[in-house]
Structure formats: structure tokens, C-alpha cells
Design a protein around this nucleic acid. Structure first.
Lengths: 144, 144
DNA sequence: TTGAAAATATTGAATATTCAACAATTGAAG
DNA sequence: CTTCAATTGTTGAATATTCAATATTTTCAA
């Protein structure tokens, strides 16, 4: 039943890694126009709802481990893109907020990211794109 | 047409990153039984055809940048899993080979990886899996 | 044939990530 | 109430990755 000698290119884990690497590389390239790494864009985008988000929430949302996030947030605070506020309801928590400067930057980044999505839609097709998104969502669901 | 305010979870780049993170985490967990990172498994698997592969080829295949690969290979050489041979036809190149110890380890890793594929097939389904693989391959193709 | 450009791999310094340990706060059981 | 376990976030040391620069070999045009 199993295929222990299947080439690595047939493993789902590999195909995902390969596709992710390529798409991420393209996105990085666009965002580099503003000198911002992908994870910082994710952070700004999540915070741009204007509400405070705890570090834990944020770590999940931006796909980073806690210590990695803490240090990235340190840099973003230095760049005055975001700021920390201690949660008054639970003083273990830190709530992150986006600054005005962060909002301005986020808008620019969003449009760079949308450019990319449109480029994918063109070269890969409408139908394939939405079908792929659907399957990815369902894979993520089934993995929890 | 574009959706500049779409939540990040609707971006293909994000869904790919999320799915990849989750599947890769699961694979890591299994391979950790043998104390081997995913990239080393990929390397061993590629080299297990018994032929020599240059560093450049290998970097593409295992999805690592050249300097990162060089340093990982240094570790694998220390662990006597692989060895270097200068390419006689083009002395700029280094050909990598798998050792006997590497082959033994690779077999164990393959079966751990196959376990995972089977687990995915069960929870996610045969049909979805092969459709997802097909779409990922085609995305990768269309990105080059 | 020579010399400049391209291809290949490695190195070292700068940066980023991870792991384990820690500190602070909350929750909850006795 | 008090104490002990769980939750949340940060830190420091160890490890890994990246960027720019380098060394070597090959290619190719003049």
C-alpha cells in the first residue's frame, strides 16, 4: 500500500514546502520595496482592525513561535510601527496595537500583496486558485 | 476588483504558509524520533539514488540557500551520513554521496514519513489529497 | 591564447530563531 | 485565605540562517 521509495517530490509535505517557498519568495520580493519582512506585514494586517491583540493570539496569527515574535515585536516597537499595553483585565497579558505610522505602512503593503494575488490569478487561473484555497483551508481544518 | 482589505487568511500566500507550517510540524515530530531535521531527510532521500549530486542541485532539491546547505552538509559529514567528492569533470563542483550509515538511517526516516502520508490520507481523504497535490504541482509549474 | 565574465561553493560577520529557564499573574482546590 | 499549578510573556545562551565577500574553476569572446 505505502510507497516507501516514492521520490520526495510526491510527498505532500514537500509539495507544500516547495509551493510555499516560491510564493513566499515572490511576496518577500514585493514587500522588500518597503523594507518589510512578510511576518511584519502579517502582524500589521492583523493589528489593523484597531483592537488590542495579545502576544499569544498574535503568535498564532502570524505563524511565529512566542520568543521569535517577542523579538520581532521589539524591532517593530523600535520602528514605532506598533506599541505594547498591559492588559488591564489580565495583567499577565500584553496587548499589541498598531500605530498611525504602522497604519500608513500597512496600506502600502496591502496593495503590494494584492498585486501579487492578482499576478497569481493571471498566471495560475481563477478556478485553480479558488479551488486550491478551498483545499488548503480544509487541510488545515482536518489537521486540528 | 482587488480586495485590499481582505483578511490575511484569504491570501493564498498565507494559506500556503499555514498549511506548510502545520504539516511540516507533524513531520518534524515524527522524524525527531531519529533526531533528524526535515531538511536532512530530504537530503538523504535525494542522495539515496546512489549518484553524486552537486551542491547546487541539492540546494534546489532540498529547498535551502547555498550557504545554509553548505553548513548543514558540514554537520552531516561530521555525522558520517554523507561525504564530499570533487567533481572530476568540473572541478568547481562538489559531488555529494550518501554513506552506508546514511542509507540505513534514510530507510527508517522514509517509513516515518510514509506513516505521516498515510495519516493524512486517512483524515483528509484520498481524493482531496491527490487533487491538492495536482494543484500544488501546477502552481509550482506556473511560477517558473 | 589570453583575459574578462560567469558559475560554483565556501567563509565570516551580522542577524534571526530556538530551547530551556525564568518571572509575574491568575485560577482553583483545599 | 492560602498555596500550588497553569497561563502568559520575556530573557539569555546555543544554534541556525542570511548577506556580502572571497576563492577557484570554467567559459567564451577578442
Amino acid at each position: 500500500m505505502a510507497k516507501p521509495n516514492a521520490p520526495i517530490t510526491e510527498h505532500l509535505a514537500y509539495l507544500l514546502a516547495q509551493a510555499n517557498r516560491e510564493i513566499n519568495r515572490q511576496l518577500e520580493l514585493r514587500l522588500s520595496k518597503e523594507g518589510v519582512p512578510v511576518e511584519q506585514w502579517r502582524t500589521l494586517k492583523v493589528l489593523s482592525d484597531g483592537y488590542g491583540h495579545s502576544m499569544g493570539e498574535l503568535a498564532d496569527a502570524v505563524l511565529l513561535n512566542h520568543p521569535t515574535l517577542t523579538k520581532m515585536i521589539d524591532r517593530m516597537v523600535s520602528d514605532t510601527l506598533v506599541y505594547r499595553v498591559q492588559d488591564p483585565n489580565d495583567r499577565r497579558k500584553v496587548l499589541m496595537f498598531i500605530s498611525d505610522r504602522g497604519k500608513v505602512l500597512c496600506k502600502k503593503l496591502n496593495s503590494l500583496a494584492v498585486d501579487q494575488e492578482e499576478h497569481i490569478l493571471e498566471s495560475y487561473g481563477d478556478k485553480s486558485t479558488s479551488e486550491l484555497k478551498r483545499l488548503l483551508e480544509s487541510l488545515i481544518d482536518s489537521s486540528n
